[in-house]
Nucleic acid binder design. Sequence first.
DNA 1: GTCATATGACTGACTGGTCAGTCTGTCAGG
DNA 2: CCTGACAGACTGACCAGTCAGTCATATGAC
Lengths: 197, 197
Amino acid sequence: MTNNVDTQESGKRELILEGALRVFSQKGFHGATVEEVAEVAGVGKGTVYLYFGSKTDLFVSVVEEKLKELQEVVMERLRNIEGACAKLSETIELHWEFFNRSREFVKVILSDLSGLEKELDERTREARTGFIGVLESIIEEGISRGEFKDVEPRMAAYAIEGAISFVAFENLVNKMSAPSIPNVSQLVDFCLNGLCP
Amino acid sequence: MTNNVDTQESGKRELILEGALRVFSQKGFHGATVEEVAEVAGVGKGTVYLYFGSKTDLFVSVVEEKLKELQEVVMERLRNIEGACAKLSETIELHWEFFNRSREFVKVILSDLSGLEKELDERTREARTGFIGVLESIIEEGISRGEFKDVEPRMAAYAIEGAISFVAFENLVNKMSAPSIPNVSQLVDFCLNGLCP
DNA sequence: GTCATATGACTGACTGGTCAGTCTGTCAGG
DNA sequence: CCTGACAGACTGACCAGTCAGTCATATGAC
């Protein structure tokens, strides 16, 4: 998929992606209309299909884009950090910041995950898995350095990802009138040391 | 909403709910068709609208039903358990079991959460909140008994719920060839003591 | 410089298919 | 008969995706 108007660089693709992010965020995948995306992007509906194979392809592209962005920021920042504990803290904080910066995006990520065509569903999953992978390798490192217990790394990675996502989601949907700064450190502490004192 | 064929007890309502669970689980909210639900339930399409106000109402009713079921089981089992730690362990285990028993239901819960009409969206949220409330009060108890640190109970509740949901979801979608029993105890340990030894 | 021609990015009216929800007719039991 | 639970054919709205046409720019002949 992912049609191209062969290599033309008019920036339309980016315009459409931005528009799509806005509209999908507000209305979710099924609520959004390709026509509205086009409108918001200041582009004709047909043009959307010049750059993307289908509505679903467009959606998945938005998700991939954003998630890659996060993944890159994290990888970059992790470069100079020593120790799995410190790395994990940093990752959680960045992840949290990212979710709060692109507030609306969290909703996209946590919604409409099923009901896409199989193949494209895969692509979203892969994009997520990419990030989970970062967590996983930090945990593996931590285990081999003796900083972490010998847990199943993938399970732990998902548990952490779940904790961050749900708290972030709650935080911005029910907006639990959250002083967001305190929360992050509590969340980090929860992941590292759990509830018991 | 929630039309009734006033108090008639032919069991049709339950049939429809069961059918709806099956179909929504397989196809998600948007993928499912009222017609198919009717078919699976062995009932005419019109009949569905005799018992439920709309497709969305039907969906939310399924979620409410299931979540209430879980909540009741948990409350019941918690009755004879002393101590917040023990209560939390039990809750997580029951929650896990529930997710694995009604595997398909997890997908429903984690999908299509946005794009429903506002009012009905509220109802789903309330249903969830009901269960989060159980976690929250266990945590509060733990804090006042000195078993847990002084965290923000709601945040911790969401973190735990998120951890369980994501791990369960991953477990059954990517079916990480999971020996499911070991996982629960790891998950419980993660929530209580975190990653650090 | 200017006209002619060509290219292809772009547009948006249109189509075909899909369903949610309705409505009228059926039928069982009272 | 009559009542009302039930069925399922029907309708109206909606929208993804298409396609025939427009227009701005590029090329090149003179």
